[in-house]
Amino acid sequence: MSLAPLDAASLAVQLHAWAAMAAFLLGLAVLFRKKGTLLHKVMGRTWVALMLAVSLSSFWIHELNQFMGFSWIHLLSILVLYSMTMAIIEIRRGNVRAHRIGMLSTFAGALVIAGLFTLMPGRIMHAVVFGG
């Protein structure tokens, strides 16, 4: 494992990767802690801020360039922004179930599944984790 490929990447890629890794770790902590507490709310707001950084920074990453500099992954960023907004609206309405589903879906889709795609050969995180 070497951080050299990430260090050599653009600032947008670095911000995106570090925010995603922090969001993944914080998200795990939020998932396994008691819900509804002040700590849950603080951690959750921090997680949302990290996910905003992950989503928004993706719009300055154009390595896949499938359509005018953008790719299918940018649709995921838009979906993350939408699902987090809806989850926040739902918890403010008191709909805990919809909030939970929205946040879990965002965690699973944007961090776990999309994160696994970053480990494919040829991607920066593959080089970080596996070398090469």
Rank of each mutant, 00 (worst) to 15 (best):
I113P: 08
I61T: 03
S71E: 04
L79K: 08
L39V: 12
M103K: 04
L64W: 02
Q14I: 13
A19R: 11
S58R: 05
R123A: 02
W18A: 11
R33P: 00
S2R: 00
L39F: 09
S77G: 14
H40W: 14
R33I: 09
L31K: 07
F32E: 01
F70S: 05
R123V: 01
G27S: 11
T106A: 14
S58M: 04
V80R: 09
G131C: 13
M125I: 03
H99A: 11
V129N: 03
T106K: 08
Q14C: 12
L3W: 12
Q66K: 13
L25R: 01
N65G: 05
H99F: 07
S105M: 13
G132S: 05
V54C: 09
A108V: 10
V42G: 08
S57P: 07
A4I: 11
L75E: 07
A4M: 11
W72K: 05
G115C: 11
V42I: 15
S57L: 12
N95D: 15
G94V: 06
L6N: 06
L116E: 00
M120R: 11
V54G: 06
K35D: 03
H40L: 14
L26H: 10
L39I: 08
I124V: 15
F59I: 08
L25Y: 02
F32A: 08
V128S: 00
M84D: 11
H16N: 11
T37S: 13
H126G: 04
L28Q: 04
L39Q: 10
G132N: 06
G122L: 13
V48Q: 09
L31V: 10
A87D: 05
W60H: 09
V30D: 03
I73Q: 15
S105V: 08
A22K: 04
M120F: 12
